[in-house]
């Protein structure tokens, strides 16, 4: 998953970036409104974390411009203003959630994960599809109740696909969303990870959770989430 953090407080931004990267996210950082808007519109971002008080133009305006362009990018507002007015105004502008400063890191991660889930229509933090259960809180996957041993990349790949059930996801999209820009991008690596995932998720070759659409990409097709 690729996150955009728009925060002008350098110290806080670098701490957050580091922590989010530790959690397996690819993170882009912008320190002002205009560059935040640039990232949000021109980069393959899955979710934006936006501080309301920004130089250039405010986070509120950033969200308004983004929505005016027709973007449906999930946005989480960070605000040091406690007043409900700012939160309501932010949500009216098109944000999806808010978090007041200072916050616990766990709270931020929970909100980010919840927002990402909501895009795929998952209500519960545990994404269940047939015998496969992906727990976004502990970042673990189980098959018919038994824990699977997945690497961090395997987990991120599966999580990305499961967050977009029935959607066709190209290899390019997967590399863009799972690797930072400066990483070595080799589409063969994706194929290798997909093969390993299939082996672990479907040892009997009976479930076929990940479908390959030749020339187009992959799609997770195993049960629709319980949409709320």
């Amino acid at each position: 998953m690729r996150l955009l953090l728009v925060e002008d407080e350098q110290e806080l931004a670098s701490q957050l970036c580091k922590r989010l990267q530790d959690e397996g996210f690819v993170v882009d950082h912008a320190a002002d409104g205009p560059s935040g808007l640039h990232f949000a519109t021109d980069y393959p971002i899955d979710l934006a974390i936006v501080d309301l008080g920004l130089p250039g133009f405010s986070g509120l305006e950033l969200i308004q411009r983004l929505r005016a362009d027709g973007s449906r990018l999930p946005v989480l507002i960070l605000t040091a203003r406690q007043a409900w007015q700012d939160r309501v105004a932010g949500l009216e502008a098109g944000a999806d959630d808010y978090l007041g400063k200072p916050f616990r890191m766990e709270e931020l991660l929970a909100r980010v994960n919840a927002l990402l889930r909501r895009v795929g229509g998952w209500a519960h933090p545990v994404l269940e599809a047939g015998p496969i259960a992906l727990d976004t809180r502990s970042q673990t996957v189980s098959l018919a109740g038994k824990a699977l041993d997945l690497t961090a990349y395997e987990y991120r790949l599966l999580a990305y696909l499961m967050h977009r059930p029935d959607e066709v996801v190209s290899k390019l999209e997967l590399t863009e969303h799972l690797y930072p820009d400066d990483a070595d991008r080799d589409s063969n690596v994706i194929e290798v990870f997909i093969r390993r995932l299939r082996q672990k998720l479907d040892p009997d070759n009976s479930l076929h959770p990940i479908e390959t659409l030749r020339g187009r990409g992959y799609s997770f097709r195993l049960g629709t989430p319980h949409r709320s």
Partner: peptide
């Protein structure tokens, strides 16, 4: 008062994340 609260909270957020992120 809102500005005061605002200006206190960002450093507080930095402080907390700094402390929490030192694994």
């Amino acid at each position: 008062l809102a500005d005061l609260a605002h200006s206190l909270k960002t450093p507080l957020a930095v402080l907390r994340t700094t402390l929490e992120s030192d694994s």
